[in-house]
Design a protein around this nucleic acid. Sequence first.
DNA 1: ACGCTTTCTGAAAGCGTTTACATCATACCA
DNA 2: TGGTATGATGTAAACGCTTTCAGAAAGCGT
Lengths: 335, 335
Amino acid sequence: MPKRRATISDVARLAGVSIATVSRVVNGTAPVAEDTVQRVREAIATLGYTPHAAARKLAGRETGTLGVLLPEVAAEFFFPLVRGIAEEVRNAGYDLLIHVASSGQESSLSTPLGEHNTDGLLIFTGRLSDEEITRLYDAGFPMVLLYRSPPDDLPIPYVMFENKKGARALIAHVISVHHCRRIAFLRGPEGNEDSEWRERGYREALENHGIPFDEDLVGMGGFDADIARETVEHWLQQGLDFDAIFAGDDEAAMGVMAALRHAGKKVPDEVAVLGFDDINSAKLMAPPLTTVRAPIQAAAAGAAQALLAQLKGEEPPRQLRYPTQVIIRQSCGCD
Amino acid sequence: MPKRRATISDVARLAGVSIATVSRVVNGTAPVAEDTVQRVREAIATLGYTPHAAARKLAGRETGTLGVLLPEVAAEFFFPLVRGIAEEVRNAGYDLLIHVASSGQESSLSTPLGEHNTDGLLIFTGRLSDEEITRLYDAGFPMVLLYRSPPDDLPIPYVMFENKKGARALIAHVISVHHCRRIAFLRGPEGNEDSEWRERGYREALENHGIPFDEDLVGMGGFDADIARETVEHWLQQGLDFDAIFAGDDEAAMGVMAALRHAGKKVPDEVAVLGFDDINSAKLMAPPLTTVRAPIQAAAAGAAQALLAQLKGEEPPRQLRYPTQVIIRQSCGCD
DNA sequence: ACGCTTTCTGAAAGCGTTTACATCATACCA
DNA sequence: TGGTATGATGTAAACGCTTTCAGAAAGCGT
């Protein structure tokens, strides 16, 4: 039973001014006499007035808020991501609303975000269907894609990492330094572009070193510890032979290590384990994980900047490609 | 340069009906003739009409969306939390908006959430100041507190785990089964209620077994791997003697293990490590972590239900206390 | 004292919906 | 056959705010 909230009119009445004046002191959009400001401020305070955001949006043209669309599954790297975005957005004076998909319903815009309700959108891989994205694009709605390229080559800005290059360098390391020859690869979720590029890097490295690609050495990791673990356990059971596993990402690597440990396989002596992302726990694993650092927070901040730029009418970069860097720790056999 | 979006009037004009009728077919709030429905549907489709959420909120009384206020730092257990909430909320036909605090600004309600803009709020520990919470309460705003009790004993529903009981049982286990005597404890963030209760459980267990509490064995873990790691490294450096570490939560436990491993201390042979929460990676650690399972997702779902109940005018439970369960794995010395 | 700015303020027109309230057929019952 | 529910639709009044437009008051140069 919420009591009716104070509205701008209530404030105006109490302060003995018009609602226009109240609006002006609240927003500082026009000069107001000092004592009037005082009275209005007091009135606001005693009434505990808070502007009604919906009304504001309706009246003004901009909503002052940006939306982020995230998929249901979210891994550890979600945080640097959100943090990177949040900081940029906040600095620019916008608010940030995050919408997490719930299982089942996928790829649809829900009421509170998008179009009328936010000034722009940061869209994570897989959150929206190509059609939906195209529709928004056609409507001239500002957005930036995270870790996926736009459908139909639409000129929508997007951020990506140098997945291929990083993966290639990582694999090259275990081949040339640790003489691994049977290197398994765990794919990410179906259709994930990051995973596709990592796989290409993996294949290129093999090719460069004259190692034939073996489909048997590729399995599903899903960028998920449990899935990766299952796959590796399955492999172990059927006696698949490998001397290294590139888990696709760090989460999966964690699952891989657990499976190996459980089976009594020594990491890295018997099997090298490789990740991708360099999430916070990578350095805490046993042994510390050799991986590829993806500047997640920086990329997220870049994405936010690109969105903000669009909002200001500037031409944002078509593509933001962030460099990756191999981080050698112990899970590959170094040290 | 977004083209002007289609409004309800555009649809009405194209379909040759009044805006009221359009509204009715959109919301299904009143019977409309079948062929009229058809015409309106078509008009909506050809115009690509999407209702303006702000206008809707302004006009109707409810916003149809619930807000979640999260602190800046968010750990792995954030996900089950969000998932639990999201599912309940979605099932009830509400939308969910998550607002993540950005560093610096704390405990303040930002424009897009709260009061006029959501019908209710789920508030995480530390996100809002007592004053702010009290103000919202006074305004009759529906909310549920996560992992903290209400200020001034206000009758605001809140969810908590049986922290004390779980911690007590956990510590009792290492004392009686593994004969640990010098058990260190890592506190969570300043003022965190979960941490306080866990500490009480820890102390009670000590007391029950006649072990004197030693302030030197208590340090800061911050529910954070890096902080915990530093503390333990510091302890190790100054030669502090302990045979077990209760890390406060699982994240911290991960840091503890890393510090111990780095120093060449065997877990669990030389030092037992204990966590709390049973996050996904707990079972993947080396060795798998003995911890206390907190039904995070269930608790979150319960919180959401309590909020929804309030919205329906029902009397929600004052407090939701979720049971915890000791999960014995290997880091304590079992197996 | 006169015009001209400059400052401050109010009236009122939207913004895109929802939702009484009213209207008008049409159908049903006695 | 008159009377009354019932169904389908339109009219118009909110909802709480921003903003344009104009007007009043005040300052200033001549």
